[in-house]
Amino acid sequence: MPIIVRLDVMLAMRKMTSRDLAARIGIAEQNLSLLKSGKVRGVRFNTLEAICSELGCQPGDLLEFQPETEEA
């Protein structure tokens, strides 16, 4: 998947644990963990909004597009 989730980096920068963030934005810690590891099919706008609002960042700080390199 060429979309990289940078949530762990943002959490480390804010010195916040996944558990704290999950509790603050009201989603299951397990779901946040899945999001952190990129093992999800999508992110709802309201989840993204809650995370950005809590971490004081932009959606672009959380998600990054890395094109898959074609091996010759």
Binding site: L35, R41, R44
Partner: peptide, 9 residues
């Protein structure tokens, strides 16, 4: 649809 829904956080 349910599988898809459960994989969106």
């Amino acid at each position: 649809l349910w599988r898809d829904h459960s994989e969106v956080v």
